[in-house]
Design a protein around this nucleic acid. Structure first.
Lengths: 212, 212
DNA sequence: CGCGCACTTGAACCCCTTCAACGGGCGTGG
DNA sequence: CCACGCCCGTTGAAGGGGTTCAAGTGCGCG
């Protein structure tokens, strides 16, 4: 109950609303590597990530995981599946231990959708996800590997420095080999320098590679 | 005014609401091949497709158009860009002459977002788009060309029969050559037969190629 | 010292595109 | 009526971007 009150999605609810919400939801803990839901599963609950980190991915024809997004608290996760009443379009896996609020979706729909403030929150969440998906499409379909890497260096420089290259490669859905080759190319062209952290020498050239 | 009343999105509005909406919107006609908006443009209006067909696509690094979706009336188009106040993530082009209701988005936001019925319509529209995007990701990233074609044959058999192969290829973001080769392969395997329309002989084998 | 892990580099491979050539159907004009 | 051009589909061969496989290197750490 106290926990629910702190969730931005529901913070506007009055005492009565909170109580009703509390009645139709439970909190469940997960450990690292546990699966919140699998691609293809039928949704019964609306999941609200309260704590921990969740990785969302699809599996391609070769069995490789295609990384789509990483969720941080507090987020609705794959609410699309609830709204559209379709199977989950991807798999959600905890990358560290965490907690989820599981709300009985049917009952939520009956009782709460007339609430304009909640509707607004849902719209914001959906719009945000659509934006993410649009970026996924850009990254995976429109850009070459070189452009993807350039974009990542520019937009996530610190993250790049803090992660191993194998990890970065998997975030970008590339092999470590491709990442390595491209980075040495960038170094030879003196676009970047790497010693104890990333240093971008020619920002414009990097941006040019993926902008438009 | 009369036109607006017939739009499902707004059909629930009372007389006063309709009048207000009418005041902040205009109807604009477009011819075939005209562009509703370009990728990268800043959105000022919410576009509601009233008549005609609109093709949504992105352009990849080689300058090829990557087909994302075809909109039929009545649809909101790329409302994401309005909500998130970001540039349009793709280009929208009329494939035949049509009409669009252009609503001044800023004013809409101020006046109408408290309306729970309208919010619900927006949620439905957003969720539907998210589903579309999820399918785009599946088609373009997860499936091989063979699987894409198998899926299209199974799910859009009549459409396949009614279109030229070049058109089908461009819907699937494939070259006509690849489509041709794959179809002859399917014919050799006796999965399909084509004489004056598509005939699926081994549905299960086709489904197997893309399911899972 | 020896092991494991991340990174690098080269070579082969794969899937699809690109390029080029060819053939058939169909409308149009001579 | 035939010849021509055009579009569409087909087929082969080459090319390209990235992955896969394999081997080698460097480094930290028990």
């Amino acid at each position: 109950m106290n926990r629910i009150k702190e969730i931005p999605f529901f913070s506007h609810l009055d005492k009565n609303g909170l109580k009703k919400l509390n009645d139709i939801s439970t909190i469940k803990k997960y450990n690292s590597k546990e699966i919140l839901f699998f691609e293809g599963e039928e949704p019964k609950h609306l999941h609200v990530l309260l704590d921990g980190v969740v990785r969302l991915y699809k599996t391609n024809h070769k069995g490789n995981q295609i990384f789509l997004h990483q969720f941080l608290p507090v987020s609705l996760i794959a609410e699309l599946a609830n709204f559209e009443n379709i199977p989950y379009p991807a798999t959600a896996e905890f990358t560290c231990r965490g907690e989820v609020l599981r709300v009985d979706y049917k009952k939520l729909e009956e009782g709460f959708f007339k609430n304009p403030e909640l509707s607004f929150q849902i719209i914001k969440s959906l719009a945000g996800k659509l934006k993410i998906m649009s970026e996924v499409v850009t990254n995976e379909i429109v850009l070459t590997s070189e452009a993807k890497i350039a974009k990542f260096l520019v937009e996530n420089g610190e993250l790049f420095s803090s992660l191993k290259n194998t990890k970065v490669a998997s975030l970008l859905n590339l092999t470590p080999e491709t990442l390595s080759r491209t980075l040495t190319k960038f170094k030879k062209q003196e676009f970047i320098r790497i010693d104890d952290g990333l240093e971008i020498l020619k920002l414009d050239d990097l941006v040019e590679m993926y902008a438009n």
